[in-house]
Every structure is written in C-alpha cells, then in structure tokens.
C-alpha cells in the first residue's frame, strides 16, 4: 500500500512511469490509494471494425487542440487458447504518442476471470485524481461481457458503421439502450446517411426527450468530430439508461463472484460427473459466497 501511495504522489506530479506502474498494481488486484467512485469516464463501444479506435484518435486531436488532457483505457479481448493477447488499438491512435496531454494504456480481458470491473473503476479514479480531464474506456461491443465493461462508464457513446449489418449486431447485444449518443462513422461512404436514418427510425418508436441523438462523423476526413465532442460534453444520461447500467453492473458483480468462487472448480467437476444438478450447483456457490 505504501508503494502505491508513493506512486500516486509521483503520478500526481506528472510522472508517467509512476502512473503506469500504479495502474498495473491496481489492475493486478492491489488496493487503490484513491477513494472509489470519484472519477468520471466516457465509454466508447460498437461492433468490430466500425472505426472506434480511429475515431478516438480524432477525438484526442480535438481535445489536445483545445488544451485538454485525455487518458484512454483500451480494452482488448485476448486469445482464450494461449492466454496471450495481441493488442493493436494503439496503432490507430498514432498522433497520440507525441503529446504530453495523452496517455493510453491497453488492458486485456484474460487476466480478469471475474471481468474487468474490479479494476476499471479504481483505474478511472486514479486517472481522475492525477488530473486527466477526459477519461475514455474503449471496448469492442461484440458480447455481453464487453457491454458490462462499458456499463461502468458514466456516459456511453455507441459507434456504428454504414453497413446495416453492424447495427443489428449492436441491437442484438443490447447496447443501443445504454447509449447516450450514437454516431455513424465513415460518413464519407454513401450508405452512411441511410444507416443513420435506419438507426433513428429504430430509436424513434416511443421517442421522448431521452432518446439519444444520432450524428454522422468521419474519422477518415475528420468531419463532424468537433460537433460530436461538443455533443458529448452536453449530454446528460436519462434515469432509464442509468437504471439499465446499474443492472449491467450488478450482473457483472454477480458473474465476478461466481467466476472467482473457490467452489467453482469443484462445482464444475461435480456437474461434469452428473453428481449434482445445476440448481444444487448454484445453491452451493451462493452459500460459499
């Protein structure tokens, strides 16, 4: 703990190495020296290949031009087979590596059998404590566990592409309901406008003042990025969405309890042998927890 207090002090004074060391400590499950829940974050998610990382690269440029600092926690899935990971998000945010106002760290999901939730919140808190103004969590919105990661953010931006197929994936995954703002990236492509209309019409059933806006942007040309950054700053989340997020966070905490339970391995073996029923297995783990 004393280590992490020293590191925090140095990180506050602008030492990047101390900051990254401290974040690693917290990621590995050590207690954070910062009070929990003090930082605010922006979650950015969307189907694979819609240009999230490129878009974040452009958003970084806008923030840096305005003199604001930005820290990105890029969450990357890892190979379930080897346990290794190939993390390539950074390569799309290339302008970022030369400014003191930008800090990017890549996280892999593998190291966290119970999900990233246990470390993500304290990491955001630490970054906020060290005066990083914009804190972004990036995840691939391709599965339930990734949605749960993004549900830990205070505001959520959903990025989509011009192919109608992409948004269907997002709908299936249940991300649409959580988003405070939706953008269709690749607005330089001809289908983008139609995709934006389709998303709008999908949302407008039962539209009220809490329905998120849909904007067109292009990470390629930079079109619409400033407007998007401004829109994000002015977005407030609705109670409905907040409730859905709290729900995802609870499920995430529940999963984490299950997956880190001491009884998990035993219970799996018993189930495999057929010596207990699923209900008995659930009861057993609940008792242990």
């Amino acid at each position: 703990m004393s280590d992490s207090i020293d590191l925090l002090q140095e990180a506050r004074d602008g030492n990047r190495r101390s900051l990254s060391k401290l974040l690693t400590l917290v990621e590995e499950g050590n207690p954070s020296p910062v009070e929990r829940g003090t930082g605010l974050s922006l979650g950015i998610t969307g189907p694979p290949g819609v240009g999230k990382s490129s878009l974040i690269g452009k958003m970084i440029d806008v923030w840096v031009d305005r003199g604001e600092s930005v820290a990105v926690l890029a969450v990357d899935p890892s190979s379930p087979r080897s346990g290794g990971a190939l993390l390539g998000d950074r390569m799309r945010m290339t302008n970022a590596d030369s400014s003191d106002l930008v800090f990017i760290i890549t996280l892999e999901t593998r190291k966290h059998p119970g999900g990233l939730m246990d470390c993500l919140t304290p990491m955001v808190d630490i970054l906020s404590e060290c005066s990083w103004e914009n804190i972004v969590i990036e995840t691939v919105g391709a599965g339930q566990s990734e949605i749960r990661v993004v549900a830990f953010a205070d505001r959520i931006l959903l990025v989509d592409g011009p192919d109608r197929g992409d948004i269907i994936q997002a709908e299936k995954a249940g991300i649409m309901e959580l988003a405070d703002l939706i953008v269709i990236n690749k607005s330089d492509l001809p289908e983008a406008e139609r995709a934006a209309k389709a998303v709008k019409s999908g949302l407008s059933v039962g539209e009220d003042e809490t329905t998120p806006d849909v904007l067109l942007v292009s990470a390629h040309s930079g079109e619409g990025i400033e407007e998007m950054v401004d829109a994000l700053a002015n977005t407030t989340t609705s109670p409905d969405r907040e409730r859905l997020r709290v729900r995802e966070r609870l499920i995430s905490a529940w999963d984490s309890t299950l997956l880190t339970s001491n009884e998990l391995e035993n219970t799996l073996q018993e189930l495999e042998k057929g010596s207990i029923t699923l209900q008995e297995a659930v009861d057993c783990i609940r008792k242990e927890g």
Binding site: R17, S20, L87, R90, D97, I104
Partner: peptide
C-alpha cells in the same frame, strides 16, 4: 502473433514510429 501464442501480452505499435514515441509507449503501457 508468435509471442501471443506463447502466452505473452503484446502491444503492437503499427508502422513508422519515432524512437521517442516508442519510448513513450513502453512507459505508458508499463
């Protein structure tokens, strides 16, 4: 990829990075 398959966590920077950028990435990514 080979390192990943060997169980390591690999961060690939992409092409055309300056030495200064590489140093910064090593620091930030710990």
């Amino acid at each position: 990829r080979a390192l990943r398959d060997g169980g390591h966590e690999v961060i690939y920077t992409g092409l055309r990075r300056t030495p200064e950028e590489i140093v910064r990435i090593v620091i930030d990514e710990d």
